[in-house]
Design a protein around this nucleic acid. Structure first.
Ligand code: SF4
Ligand code: SF4
Lengths: 157, 157
DNA sequence: CGATATAAGACTAAAAATATCTTATATATC
DNA sequence: GATATATAAGATATTTTTAGTCTTATATCG
């Protein structure tokens, strides 16, 4: 009944990009450092965000990630579900077949309602407002992570 | 982001008891068979429900479980949280200290709101209505579980 | 007492989450 | 084109959580 770490990281990544605005390229390294996410883990999450059409990944020197849409058009729900899949408070909500009983189950309907409400709330939240907040999440993370200084993929000579 | 199996089992157990009414003693064996829950697992869950004051456990021959309160006074939320602990959609909701940043985080507030809504919905659902439903969950489980015939703790002579 | 229940917690197995490592590929710059 | 720097992609490893089982102890009825 909780968000996974990957989901939380995905949100941080998009929020950081949203603060730079749509289309601005930001390196994975910077995002990882500023949002306190392991760089390699971020790579994986970014791939899922890219597949969902939320960000674009630029390879090569001076590569990085950029937002494809305007922050106001990106909902919290779409980011979360891009990373962890469709939200489902109980198995039978998204897979009614998992319980032979779901067709007539009173509890099933309660879960369905709660699930709908939750998704609607998250769908109703976009990144424009959050990015604009004076004290946003990500400004509080240190610019150069003390314990996470060197996340480069390359070995030093 | 999903209910654990233990939570689901706890709900089934209470619902089954609710259908018998407050104070009626039902054996663990019967509950386990009718709700399709492993008997030993149910024992563990029942202990948590007992600690939360929802059911009472009677030991000895002809023992079993009984509801302490009227089904109308037992909310879905109380049963779930008795089994899986307080609902928390994200770590920082129940443990703000887990992220040094929660005090000023815009996303944090969204999670707080969503979490409150979810808990309110579950709090607003009690077992009286669900137990009264014509085709309740538990009637659909076979009376004698085909693959779960013998859940006795005792070895046969 | 003896049969039949659950208590309590140790133990095991399976699954999922989290993170890392390795090899490959793309791009800018020289 | 060569080189340095970036991400891609997926295999692998570690840790944590979930799910279930097993064993020994205790309570109650008849
Ligand atoms: S018993 Fe009802 S709530 Fe539980 S899994 Fe089956 S359909 Fe869902
Ligand atoms: S960054 Fe915000 S939402 Fe994420 S864990 Fe920290 S306080 Fe919670």
């Amino acid at each position: 009944m909780r968000l996974t770490r990957a989901g939380e990281y995905g949100i941080r990544c998009v929020l950081h990009l949203a603060r730079h605005g749509r289309g601005t390229l930001v390196s994975r390294k910077e995002i990882a450092a500023r949002t306190d996410v392991p760089a390699h883990f971020l790579a994986k999450i970014a791939q899922q965000l890219a597949r969902a059409g939320i960000i674009e990944i630029m390879q090569g020197a001076n590569g990085g990630y950029r937002l494809l849409a305007d922050p106001s058009e990106i909902s919290l729900l779409s980011v979360i579900e891009a990373v962890i899949g469709e939200i489902s408070l109980n198995d039978c909500v998204t897979r009614p077949g998992s319980c032979h009983n779901s067709a007539t189950c009173a509890i099933h309907r309660v879960w369905g309602k709660a699930n709908r409400e939750l998704r609607d709330t998250l769908r109703g939240t976009n990144f424009a407002a959050m990015a604009a907040e004076e004290s946003c999440c990500l400004t509080s993370f240190p610019e150069t992570g003390a314990g996470r200084r060197d996340d480069s993929d390359e070995a030093r000579p």
